[in-house]
Simulated assay, not measured.
Amino acid sequence: MSTNSTPYPHSYSQAAKLDSRITVPRPVIDPVLAPIVDAFPLPEELDVGFLRGLSAGGGDDAFVTNADTVLKANPHLTHKEHSIVGPDGNTVMVSVFAPRVVTSALPALYHIHGGGMISGDRFSAIPPLLDLLEGVACIVVSVEYRLAPETRAPGPAEDCYAGLIWTSANASSLGIDPAEIVVCAVSGGAPLAAAACLMARDRKLPTVPIRAQMLLSPMLDDRCESVSDKQFEYGVPWNGVTNRGAWNHVLGDDRGTDKVTMYQSPSRATDLSNLPQAYIDAAECEVFRDPAVMYAMNMWRCASTCELHVWPGAVHLFDAVDNPNIPLVGAAISAKRNWLKRMMTPQGRPSVTLKS
């Protein structure tokens, strides 16, 4: 599974000038973001082992995230682990983080981690997620799905759907209002979130409809043929080479063919009607931009509701960590927080923060 872990040799912000392979005109990376983007060069070709090591903290205990580290930083939360039966008789692990004091049923954020569908775990993105939920009284449910290439699509999406069904069916015992479940995912988790919402619509389960879906810098299209795919084939984090490599692990030889279904690659869906309302965002300087915009447009075409943001001059996951010195990062985080508050703070409910 390993290919090449040599970091990209140029600064990303100057790649269009320095990399002779880049011939397609493209938007320029925001100079304010350049020092941050350039500080972490990544391999251009996909290396599953490298990516999994990076997701696990890169060998540095200071960057490891698990239930203990989450609770240490958030002592007002509790954590319970649940084991459920997956679609193939496999085990799907689910972590539930809840406030210690809950007086009534709360909304739930059902979280599907990123990592290109080939890396990461249910804890890896919880700290920034709790930051986004500051001031929102809710319960976080995070699912552990099988990864590619060991499990090909739609296996990971079916795992996430099974966890979603379990969350809704057990809402009462979990302290969750089943009518207020929001599905949230970043990057490689987003196609699984979108697929789970499509499954819920088509299979009419859960019986109580999902409240909303949040797809952040979503990896939605296996074909990798859009304008943004071509513009950012090289010279950005998670470039076209990386993206095709990940999809090849997820779909094998079927990638880009008419064998791929919407449950494997949500951009293949032709009917996006009757879906939970969505928040979709993307960076202007990333391969995922145009498929994300097209997904939003197709939701509107089919009379579904979507709030869409494209952040100018930004690259993939530019707003993963709040940075008060960069207004664009603050704007992106504020937009996400505001949307979550609108979705998950019904009038009359007191505000109980998940972040101390």
Rank of each mutant, 00 (worst) to 15 (best):
E158P: 04
L130H: 02
T151Q: 13
E134K: 13
S119L: 10
V143A: 00
I126K: 05
R152A: 15
P128M: 11
L130Q: 01
G163F: 00
P149I: 15
R152W: 08
A125K: 03
L133V: 07
S119N: 11
L164K: 03
L133Q: 02
C160D: 10
W166H: 01
P156Q: 03
W166L: 02
Y145H: 13
P156W: 01
S142M: 10
L133M: 10
P156S: 05
G135R: 11
L130G: 03
E134N: 11
Y145V: 10
G120N: 05
I165N: 04
P149G: 13
D121W: 07
G135L: 12
A148S: 15
E144V: 12
D159W: 00
I139E: 01
I126C: 01
G120A: 03
V140P: 08
R122E: 03
A157I: 02
T151E: 11
L133A: 05
W166T: 00
R152T: 15
G155A: 15
G135K: 12
P127T: 08
L133D: 00
R152S: 14
P127N: 12
P127V: 11
F123H: 14
P156L: 11
A162G: 06
D121I: 07
V141M: 03
P149L: 06
L132S: 10
L164S: 03
E158C: 09
A125D: 14
G155K: 00
S142W: 06
P154A: 01
T151V: 12
F123A: 07
L132D: 04
D159T: 04
P156R: 02
R152D: 06
Y161I: 06
D159H: 02
G120F: 05
R122L: 09
E150M: 13
P127W: 07
L133I: 06
F123T: 09
L132T: 10
A162T: 11
A162N: 05
V143N: 10
A137Y: 09
I165Q: 02
V136Q: 09
L147H: 05
A153N: 14
L132R: 08
C138D: 08
L130A: 07
L133E: 00
E144D: 14
P156T: 07
D131T: 05
L164W: 02
E150K: 14
I139M: 08
L164I: 07
V141E: 00
A157T: 02
E134G: 10
V140G: 03
D121Q: 10
R146A: 12
V143W: 00
S142T: 08
C138A: 15
A125L: 11
E158Q: 12
D159I: 07
S124R: 07
P128D: 01
D131M: 04
A162M: 07
E144A: 15
L147P: 04
L130M: 08
E150H: 14
L164V: 02
C160L: 08
L129P: 00
S124K: 11
D131R: 02
P128Q: 02
A148D: 08
D121G: 15
L133Y: 06
P149K: 09
L147T: 11
G155W: 06
C160N: 13
L129C: 08
